[in-house]
Design a protein around this nucleic acid. Structure first.
Lengths: 354, 354
DNA sequence: TCCCTTTTTGGAAACGCTTTCATCAAAGTG
DNA sequence: CACTTTGATGAAAGCGTTTCCAAAAAGGGA
């Protein structure tokens, strides 16, 4: 029919009354005679009228919108965080505007700017480096309700975070219990993620505490396709390691695959522990030992924290540090077995495949 | 400093000029003397002024925002779609508002309503049933620029879709080539996804075409935790099947695990083929045979289609049906080997694990 | 019937922006 | 020097709401 969507003015005209009355009737605020109500309702219905959130937001200076910035959705952890955040926001009638920083601080900052310009009512985000983020600075200065996820509290902002150091300590303990001494820490974009660094630092400190050798830091820069090759090279260069703690599960699984291609038995020749606890870890054989976290709770909690500030509700309790993760044992971690560790070509150790 | 964010009026006051001038200077539209320009710029800077997208949108009736509805982010396919869509939108200065339908038509409709009320400039979405979606009806009636993803074209809306039937035919062909006759089709929420149904129909038709038995339809309703148990039961009930085509990779991987728990060798006792081509399929052993699709291209393309309409650009070409997928061979599909098929308890067939 | 209270109603302002239009001064032009 | 052109500028309208306020209508009691 009409190309321009109908406005409240159109409804008023059709119903033969003023726009104020239409607003009152349709919003159920204020009084109106039964007759007027009927006329307004039918006019609105006939025109297929819906309020424009724009005019409303301008007026109320509340957009019912929450901004969400995560590094990437390629990581299922963040995908889950976002999904849970979206659901939680939806429950209260809020929408989520999504932005991905691609692990880049400039994009992170720009995203924050854009979302602020869009007048989001609050923000939920995972930044690359919580202790030094221009985006967080901006948000703090703007006094915008905000909550961090998977970052530790910073800039005075609340955070639903995993205690990476404590978790890493448990991993070190597990390695130690199995008798490992020389381990490595494998990270994908080490300098771009404070989470990765915290895990490494906690791991290194704990290794020292348990009297193990300092873990070797194995960094990989980019994820360009040849990840498996890079891992293969890296593993080949460090045959002495009996165990590797990877900064996330995908990396651990990829390392598992690369190690096998090198003829290594898991866990006899090389033990592996991941981080995150994604479900894929339970589909492989042996199961991936890992640190389980709960992305859904994190995303949901972060939104609740923000909403609490917006709606003047009591702030939800942040989880105690110890409750933010749990070590999950798995067949990929076992005692080192000195056996035939160095068979370069060993397709035979790849099961059910010959 | 000030609790209320500064408006253009504040800047004008501080710079000692009219708001129109501020708008012109800051937007780089229209002319202004060097002196005024300087004053405006410094005033804006001093106040930390940023335009409110709200006022601007109200005025221009364009929010620079695209709505995005997908069933869930738990499926990495959709996570990638959303990520790619977000990136592509971002390139043109558009933001993405995200909504998840949770495979529920009511939520799907409600999301569409909300996004429309939020005055999104366009929509990119995957619906549950493209041929019969109230949400799509609404969108079509509103004449909103919109593009479907992973659904086939419907309601006159363009679509970046996978040719599910053709893909399923290739899977049937592959099963046939390996000598399978009695296969099954495994689906998670069959009645909630037209994609799943199309795959089944295409598969069934092709099986018939190749002279195979009609595939058994194995449905699973909900995904509540015990998925592996359900799969185990299901598989135990249908020992005659030599091959299973799953409606997505996760399901195929889970089935693989469940089958092994039953003592089945993959692929000798049971061949498996998935759909989607998620990277996890390459981390397991043997590799999962599957139909690869390209969620990034889909998401990106869909946004381009919408943007083309918004910015009056030539419509991007939709991919030819055949180019929307490619069959990926994998060790999980092989010829059926009658051997010791029925060992109920057979931990031995689980490799490197005893 | 008149006056007072209560309910219903619409005009108008405000929200923050862009854009048109008219004004005014400066700068050319003859 | 009178006259036109040009550039710079601000007032005001309009975008779609909500809400305040005053006016009008409707009851109610004497």
């Amino acid at each position: 029919m009409r190309s321009r969507p109908p406005t409240i003015k159109d409804v008023a005209e059709q119903a033969g009354c003023g726009i104020a009355t239409v607003s009152r009737v349709l919003n159920g605020t204020g009084s109106a005679s039964a007759d007027t109500r009927r006329k307004v309702l039918s006019a609105a219905d006939a025109l297929g009228f819906e309020f424009s959130a724009l005019g409303r937001s301008l007026q109320s200076s509340s957009t019912k919108t929450i901004g969400c910035i995560v590094p990437s959705l390629a990581n299922p952890v963040f995908a889950e965080v976002v999904q849970a955040a979206q659901q939680e926001a939806h429950l209260e009638g809020y929408q989520l505007i999504l932005a991905c920083s691609e692990y880049d601080e400039m994009q992170e900052l720009q995203a924050a700017r854009t979302l602020i310009a869009k007048q989001v009512d609050g923000l939920v985000l995972t930044v690359n480096n919580a202790s030094d983020s221009e985006a967080l600075e901006l948000i703090r200065d703007r006094r915008l309700p905000c909550c961090l996820v998977y970052n530790r509290a910073s800039f005075g902002l609340p955070a639903w975070a995993v205690d990476n150091r404590a978790a890493a300590r448990e991993v070190a303990q597990a390695f130690h219990d199995e008798g490992h001494v020389q381990t490595g820490f494998l990270a994908l974009r080490f300098h771009r993620s404070d989470r990765s660094r915290e895990r490494y630092e906690g791991f290194a400190a704990a290794c020292r505490e348990f009297g193990m050798a300092d873990p070797l830091l194995l960094e990989i820069e980019e994820q360009e396709g040849n990840l498996l090759e890079l891992l293969g090279t890296l593993l080949a260069e460090h045959q002495a390691l009996t165990g590797i703690f990877a900064s996330n599960d995908f990396l651990a699984l990829a390392a598992m695959k690369a190690a096998r291609a090198l003829g290594k038995r898991i866990p006899d020749d090389l033990s592996l522990v991941g981080f995150d606890g994604i479900s894929t870890g339970l589909l492989v054989d042996p199961h991936l030992a890992t640190v389980e976290t709960d992305p859904r709770t994190m995303g949901q909690g972060a939104v609740q924290s923000v909403l609490a500030r917006l709606l003047d509700r009591p702030t939800p309790d942040l989880p105690s540090a110890a409750a933010t993760f749990s070590f999950r044992a798995g067949g990929s971690l076992g005692p080192p077995v000195p056996g035939k560790a160095d068979g370069r070509e060993a397709a035979t150790s790849l099961p059910s495949h010959e």
